[in-house]
């Protein structure tokens, strides 16, 4: 009987961990969403898929390579901190990269080094929000919509991201201030 109790206790612990891990993920994101600062990153969406989690659009960010003044030893996959500023048009720009965590009062983002260019004078950044999950019928259309807007330079696609203490949550992908979900939905209705 005693061993049964131990097993049951162990099971309850495991069950709690199984709930705790996703709940913790949710909580971390919810905080960033509720009290983080909003940024817009210019992007180019394309659509692949994941066998378990379905369709998403991959975001390729325009602002993804940075010149480095001090040639430190940058390693691929390493975590770095990007100091962010907003340019005149309201889009996020990377001011500088550092290995050390900036002060909390500054706007910064935790990201990874994708690859180092040449002698280490430039690095390419992998943003922690490069996937935007969409309903399976909409993901491909979203990519088409984006491609159609390409020649029109006034139409700017961008990712709407909340950032707090380096942590980020991707909220939406927009073209000219309208959610790509809404645009695709409109187009699909117009076609009917």
């Amino acid at each position: 009987m005693n061993s049964k109790k131990i097993i049951l206790l162990a099971f309850v612990l495991v069950a709690l961990v199984q709930i705790y891990i996703p709940a913790k993920i949710i909580l971390n994101r919810a905080i960033v969403l509720s009290s983080g600062k909003e940024f817009k990153f210019k992007t180019a969406p394309i659509d692949p898929n994941d066998p378990f989690r379905g369709k998403y659009i991959t975001l390729n960010f325009n602002e993804n390579t940075i010149e480095i003044q001090n040639k430190e030893n940058w390693v691929r996959g390493e975590t770095v901190f990007l100091l962010l500023v907003t340019d005149n048009n309201g889009f996020a720009k990377i001011k500088s990269v550092s290995k050390a965590k900036p002060f909390d009062s500054q706007d910064f983002l935790k990201a990874k080094i994708n690859y180092v260019i040449h002698d280490g004078s430039k690095v390419s950044i992998e943003y922690p929000f490069d996937r935007f999950y969409m309903e399976e019928s909409k993901a491909y259309d979203a990519e088409l919509t984006y491609r159609r807007t390409l020649p029109d330079t006034s139409q700017v696609p961008y990712a709407l991201v909340n950032i707090k203490n380096g942590e980020s949550v991707l909220k939406d992908v927009m073209i000219n201030g309208i959610s790509i979900r809404e645009i695709v939905k409109q187009e699909q209705q117009n076609r009917k």
């Binding site: 994101r29 378990f52 943003y127 949550v169």
Partner: peptide, 13 residues
Amino acid sequence: ACISLVTQIYNIP
């Protein structure tokens, strides 16, 4: 299923 749904909802990379 739970982890994938949570990562989808928050677009977690």
